[in-house]
């Protein structure tokens, strides 16, 4: 296949489908054993310094915030991170745990741009390569397929391509240029779900973002769940399982695990908390104070939830839309 152009961005994590196959063959199994554990144990056991991690969905929507806060408490360093993000990636960047970023979007949507991203990248501390949202998800999809690349028609003709690590080739069938994205196999995936059983069978309500792809692209997969349900319930409605248990390494019970983000049909986003963080994040000292209070100041998710307060959480439950 004729390569017409190569992106000049760094490929932080080259695809290795055979390596992934060997790894899962050795480490994954189908034994029905309980994987319920605390977030401390899950992060300590399954995340190493220097790992490439992915999170799903994103910072104000069904994000694994309790796992992110634990990752920061344990100070896992030199991480490589994929994504679009809001609050979750802002926190990782603020805690200075990220070296490399396959970025598609980090910002605060209606509030504005991320001051924390600006400080991290403009100072030259964090290296970046560019992608589009679809491109990042399709890179996970390619990994989920067990191959090393996927052809797409995004990014063509742009600097987004030029500063990515994609390639443009001549399509052997149409003869037209097409963009090849390298598969993105993750060391660790972190996903927050509505329900899981003790073995790791997971259900997500509402949109599923890119949970299907990310779960299958991950060597190690840590699930946090609003609610633990029985295996019998899973088996009654198997079509609702988006992530089967054999992909999963840890199941962490985490009611309100997406706070201050929302969880559809359960609780609405904590607008006051998010807005206050966004305003504080403009100032490095106030950002540090946020981390001290809401992350380092809590030993675990239970303490965090106590700090947020039952009254506030009940209010958020009232505010979420029904079906």
């Amino acid at each position: 296949m004729e390569i017409l152009e190569s992106g000049t961005g760094e490929l932080f994590h080259p695809p290795d489908p055979d390596g992934f196959r060997e790894w899962v063959h050795k480490h994954k199994n189908t034994r029905l054993v309980s994987k319920i554990m605390s977030e401390q144990e899950a992060i300590a056991r399954f995340v190493q310094d220097g790992d490439y991690i992915g999170t799903e969905l994103y910072g104000t929507v069904r994000a694994p915030m309790s796992l992110i806060r634990e990752l920061i408490r344990q100070g896992k360093k030199h991480l490589k991170v994929a994504g679009q993000g809001v609050h979750e990636l802002d926190l990782l960047l603020a805690a200075d745990l990220v070296d490399c970023l396959d970025i598609t979007y980090i910002g605060w949507e209606i509030y504005g741009i991320s001051s924390i991203l600006r400080r991290a990248v403009e100072s030259g501390r964090v290296k970046t390569a560019e992608w589009s949202n679809a491109a990042i998800s399709w890179r996970f999809k390619a990994a989920a397929m067990g191959v090393s690349f996927i052809p797409v028609r995004s990014m063509l003709g742009t600097d987004t391509f030029k500063y990515s690590a994609a390639k443009v080739v001549k399509d052997p069938w149409t003869g037209k240029p097409v963009c090849l994205l390298p598969a993105l196999y993750l060391d660790v995936g972190l996903i927050h779900v509505h329900q899981a059983d003790e073995y790791g069978n997971c259900r997500i309500e509402g949109i599923s973002g890119f949970a299907f792809e990310l779960a299958r692209a991950s060597k190690k997969l840590i699930i946090s769940a609003e609610e633990i349900i029985s295996n019998e319930e899973i088996r009654r409605y198997p079509e609702r399982t988006i992530i089967p248990y054999y992909l999963v390494d840890a199941v962490v019970p985490a009611k309100y695990g997406s706070h201050p983000g929302e969880m559809c049909y359960r609780y609405w986003r904590d607008e006051e908390h998010l807005l206050q963080f966004y305003r504080d994040s403009a100032d490095p000292e106030k950002t540090k104070a946020y981390l001290d209070r809401w992350v380092y100041g809590c030993r675990n998710h239970d303490e965090y939830i106590k700090l947020v307060g039952t009254e506030r959480l009940k209010k958020l439950e009232m505010e979420i839309g029904g079906r």
């Binding site: 598609t104 990248v121 560019e130 589009s132 491109a135």
Partner: peptide, 26 residues
């Protein structure tokens, strides 16, 4: 929507493409 100034290191780092490149392509 990516950077103001040079790519690396940028004068102002903006959020990036997000879905915009895909929307604009398709």
């Amino acid at each position: 929507t990516t950077v103001i100034g040079n790519y690396w290191p940028p004068k102002v780092r903006l959020p990036g493409s997000g879905g915009a490149n895909d929307v604009g392509s398709h």
